[in-house]
Design a protein around this nucleic acid. Sequence first.
DNA 1: TCATGTTGTGCACACGTTAACAATCATCAG
DNA 2: CTGATGATTGTTAACGTGTGCACAACATGA
Lengths: 337, 337
Amino acid sequence: MSDVTIKDIARMAGVSHTTVSRALNDSPLINPETKERIKSIAGSLNYTPNYNAKSLVLDRSYNLGLFFTTLHQGTSSGFLYAALRGVNEVIKDGYNLIVRGIDDYTSFHHVNRKSFDGIIVMSQSAADQPFIEYAAQRAIPLIVLNRQIEMDGVWNLVPDDQSGAYRMTEYLLQCGHRRIAIIEGKPGFKSSHARKEGYLDALRSAGIEPEDELCMRGEYDFESGYQAMVRILELKDRPSAVFCSSDDMALGAVKAAAERGVRVPDDISVAGFDDTLYSAFITPALTTVRRPIEEMSRAGAEKLVAFIEKKHVEDHKRMFRTELVIRDSVKPISEGD
Amino acid sequence: MSDVTIKDIARMAGVSHTTVSRALNDSPLINPETKERIKSIAGSLNYTPNYNAKSLVLDRSYNLGLFFTTLHQGTSSGFLYAALRGVNEVIKDGYNLIVRGIDDYTSFHHVNRKSFDGIIVMSQSAADQPFIEYAAQRAIPLIVLNRQIEMDGVWNLVPDDQSGAYRMTEYLLQCGHRRIAIIEGKPGFKSSHARKEGYLDALRSAGIEPEDELCMRGEYDFESGYQAMVRILELKDRPSAVFCSSDDMALGAVKAAAERGVRVPDDISVAGFDDTLYSAFITPALTTVRRPIEEMSRAGAEKLVAFIEKKHVEDHKRMFRTELVIRDSVKPISEGD
DNA sequence: TCATGTTGTGCACACGTTAACAATCATCAG
DNA sequence: CTGATGATTGTTAACGTGTGCACAACATGA
């Protein structure tokens, strides 16, 4: 059936396979009439090039990789969907999109330049670092989304955590909160720093001097959020709102409060960050900050394809605007409270 | 960097490249000592085979395709996620999983046996038919999930609609409903028939003779559900519950009821089928039947890989158990009502 | 007339791998 | 000692495509 090759076409057209190859690739060397004739024969034979052979000689795979930190533990379906949609919208017919969880690989043996024209890593954790370095070292065009990273030659598109945190804090202030605690992210992480800076900026803009007492260490995970909230609730002068640097920690915070008979949001407001899927389902539904996953993915894929196809690409870093998602876990406080 | 080939290894080991190829592929022809020596050289050089070259000569692509009806209009993220997880769990390191929406293709040019060792179609609509036929005609190992299909040489794994409908009806009966209407699916569709049969069986098992008056035609879509519900509400002896053969129709039915001041579930109970994503979010949250997407995907991928690797595979059709999802749109009725 | 393009085409090889067949060598039966 | 057998390894071609170079035909300009 589909086993017709350029040699078959060559025989029919009475030319060499070289001419056929050139004609089908629109080489300017070929006589326009010959070219048309060859193309019409190819069309009528329903010719499809053998991409494996092309790949071999052209040193291109026509494969793009979209890698997630994990596909089976923790990645939310909404996150996956948004990323896949974003990338898929952009890539042309000529590419295959290969989707995989990094933790599915027992070795990175199959990850090399011959197999991937380019790779998009939707990074959710520092556990991806070895993979990213491996790919970078193999000189595969690489773009890392979502998680901030410092590597030369690797593009990096991340959500603007700082302004997200700024606007969330601003929102809490608008709701009348004056004493607002923060539970910080993992120490040393860029995102932790950015989110805290946004928080601090917003407070200062409102003329409120941040208090060290209200800044709690966290690790981005459920447990650390729980622990931090316990400490917050023990403060003599308890804050009326807590900004958590991740939804996971917010979940822990809500649990700690509930266990101590402190109601969210009636007694204390809790805000998160990330808008993970469950955020909408828990009680109370979490007020949080959404990261623009689909937009980032689209931009990342565009950039990657443009680079592969040799168009020049300039800037290596970019921030994407985050968005406030207002649900039920933050409550305005009336003046008299 | 990674450009070491078997010829390089051959030179270092003082053998021919053929010997290297055989050694690395564990051919029994090679002296065990030589084999070990070659393997260790390959390891130390960090050798990775060029899969494009392998593909060319072995006529295998190492690619599996996972195709959805669409990725950007209607496919729910949960559905996508479940399917992807199921397939991904099964496929080995040696395969690439290519994910795509069928409606993303402007032509099926890139779909051929040289580019795909096998294809899994997660079919949500009859619109996939041309794609499925195209792939089948190209002799690509093919498995169609979720939608029943009648084609030789094409595996087909579908949810057990009949028993799902049976158990839903049974549940309605347990809730005290005696007069239960059904809105049927598209005439001529296997699934419509199966769902109706399940409904009829359950009624008869409970000693209730089905009434023609309570069987309404539908088309699986919102509008037909609306129309059918209108007719149901006009019946002199109105049923206390309506089993809709799809969530879309259930949605239409709820709307028709609401517009006429009939409350769901207080005045009438409504059940759906499919567990589409929105089913949980609408008011009232829909009691429905979930299809075992992840399980089906896993089984499908296993079957496909087994076939590609020449192990014999027997049965070509299989049903998967569906699951009742109880939410708020069905209410038990007390004896006195 | 002859040197010098210009235009279109083919030859031969390359890409990295596998595999049919040939070759070598040791071993063994007679 | 000799031919046969079996175990290893090498030679060579093949998979389908793209490309550097040579070449033919034909036009151009002096």
